[in-house]
Design a protein around this nucleic acid. Sequence first.
DNA 1: GATGAATGAGGATTCATTCAT
DNA 2: AATGAATGAATCCTCATTCAT
Lengths: 213, 213, 213, 213
Amino acid sequence: MPRPALSETGPGSASRGRILDAAEALFARRGFSGVGMREIAQASELTPASLYNHFPGKEALYEAVLERGATPLLQLLEGLASRELGPDSIDDIVAAIMEHLSQRPHLPRLVFHEACSGGEHLSQLARRWIRPLVAQAEREFKRAPRSGFSERDVPALIAAWIHLVFGHFAMAPLLSEVFEEDLLSPEALERETRFLCELIRRMVASPPASTGP
Amino acid sequence: MPRPALSETGPGSASRGRILDAAEALFARRGFSGVGMREIAQASELTPASLYNHFPGKEALYEAVLERGATPLLQLLEGLASRELGPDSIDDIVAAIMEHLSQRPHLPRLVFHEACSGGEHLSQLARRWIRPLVAQAEREFKRAPRSGFSERDVPALIAAWIHLVFGHFAMAPLLSEVFEEDLLSPEALERETRFLCELIRRMVASPPASTGP
Amino acid sequence: MPRPALSETGPGSASRGRILDAAEALFARRGFSGVGMREIAQASELTPASLYNHFPGKEALYEAVLERGATPLLQLLEGLASRELGPDSIDDIVAAIMEHLSQRPHLPRLVFHEACSGGEHLSQLARRWIRPLVAQAEREFKRAPRSGFSERDVPALIAAWIHLVFGHFAMAPLLSEVFEEDLLSPEALERETRFLCELIRRMVASPPASTGP
Amino acid sequence: MPRPALSETGPGSASRGRILDAAEALFARRGFSGVGMREIAQASELTPASLYNHFPGKEALYEAVLERGATPLLQLLEGLASRELGPDSIDDIVAAIMEHLSQRPHLPRLVFHEACSGGEHLSQLARRWIRPLVAQAEREFKRAPRSGFSERDVPALIAAWIHLVFGHFAMAPLLSEVFEEDLLSPEALERETRFLCELIRRMVASPPASTGP
DNA sequence: GATGAATGAGGATTCATTCAT
DNA sequence: AATGAATGAATCCTCATTCAT
């Protein structure tokens, strides 16, 4: 189900795509410092030295991976933002995002690694990718009829949304083992999508009168 | 706010506690492969060679960190499970967990690093720590009056709960930068706690009749 | 008198030959565990890291040394085996072997180190190098007119032959000091060769009637 | 068949004997640099630090091992020297030495390791142990009726004797594998003893008229 | 006499990187 | 564009040794 490659670059540089694919998968698994250039080279069917014909160094390669991974998600969100707001638009948005990420499950893991590490790429990540994403979500949440949560809760709502969506992909290896079910299978993803829709519907709806019936 | 040391009350070896403290903080930041023994040694005010008087290797040290970090959380959950079930018990449970983790913010990050990596400790982590935690949560969710979500959604509910609580701490470095506010400050944590309570209340309550057809 | 290098005539890599030369001399002196990669690197005029461009590790380097050292000896023996059997052939064989080893004095020492250690390479050494050598010697001893020693003594005869020839080179550093004479000098080697010929002649010949009852 | 221990020291220091036993076996296998203090400690059921209560360091421990191993052999030789010279005295001497070494098979291996290494202990070894041994052998050879070999061959005769006797024990691990028979078994040792006697008898006897019949 | 803890030096090996080819 | 060879710095870990207990 994951895409074969995303080579997106011009011809003559098939290697660049292969390198980015290999690096993305490896960085997503073990983070920046957990992956060696040799490993990336082997997965790209190249020599470590050859990587330097395409990227000036490990750092730059990592940034290229982030860039290539995050851009399509942002573009997707921009596309979604320009839609009409119908009664089922939330469902559509959630479904579109889940579908998008299900084919790029590496991206959320890259984000989590960086987020935990508090490392040097964090500011870049925050400013260039997460901030636009959050801004988009903010607009979306404000378009939607909302009650029960105050305006001040909007950041928390957005954060919750990020944790739920990204967390599903990042935690999938662990929770798949716990629940003894592949949480990235099409069925599991569809179920999760419906679940998230229901959850978001409840998050933005009026609150129930009380906890009891 | 994070506790300075846990010290295990073992009188013979203050170093062991210092090493565990240092390693926990570092592993939480950059994951297993991102941390060097030299770094841990420096943070413990020891020589790298001295670490091996207390732990047979980096691997064992990492496992000891996981063990020491996860045990108190499980004990907390067991304590909570034996309580009476009152109308505000959900709020109490969420508050207790958030309070506990706010003083041990490293644990969720360790879990996320491991989860993303799909590494060798993952099975151990899943079986020894997450599975009991999930089992506990399962019992709790089944005690509570619940409607709107089917029985089959209980795993997704639990997963969502994990993503929200752990995600808050793991993502805090990143989202603090995005929202330009320290998400681990007492005020932010209190607000998040209230938010999570409201969210869970809605997750567990009957669904609103509004958004559906 | 020992040859400077063997060079394998591989044009692409002069380093590989230099490394093998250095490692052979060092391993012969102090055995596998007594030699460090740094030492080998220095003797090869390289950096320790560079050694790993030519051999995957110390172990593999050691095996390459054994291989390169033992092969020519086996080839020599095969060449000798195809000769005619003349009255002085024993002298020729002994002289040829002594001459060969005098230019490769490291090999017997490598064998002794391994033999004493009972280590992991021992089986390989036994099967690949010593067994063919013994088989060759067996054929030779059976070709020769022999009396006084029973068929059952052939292994002991071969062992004795190995001890005498290899022992001369392995023990030379020690016995040179004891006898205050360089036992590896051309003169000493020539004398030893004549001595061994005489000894073997007596070993193979009919026994004297004197000492027996 | 190897002796249980040689603790030979006064009571109150059973550890010293255990350490020497363990160190002797290990040094014989892998030589001085191939053995670690930790290993010796484990084999002695002690802590590395405890070794330093009995020996000032690894070097001194090694020398103590050499001392303890070589002294009895020299004493044996001295005892043999004072005997009457009978017709079967050579057989007796060889048998006594083989019997002695068969119960202390470590000593020849220690000697070979040192001999190959050309190391720092070599001079000491040569002067203190091998030289007296050689002197003793020299006297013995000169007592015996000898012919065929000139006076100048006496060193070579002695060297050959050393190679044969010591080589048998040092090479036993290797040649046992080659001949698929335990060369240190009582039967093999007895056979080897008889073989050596016959060999020595031929070495010192008058030469045969010629190689052919 | 025995040991846990500490350490500087060194063990093999991998790191990301460079450069001539 | 690709690579084999080279390297300084760093990797984890072991070394022999010391010392307070």
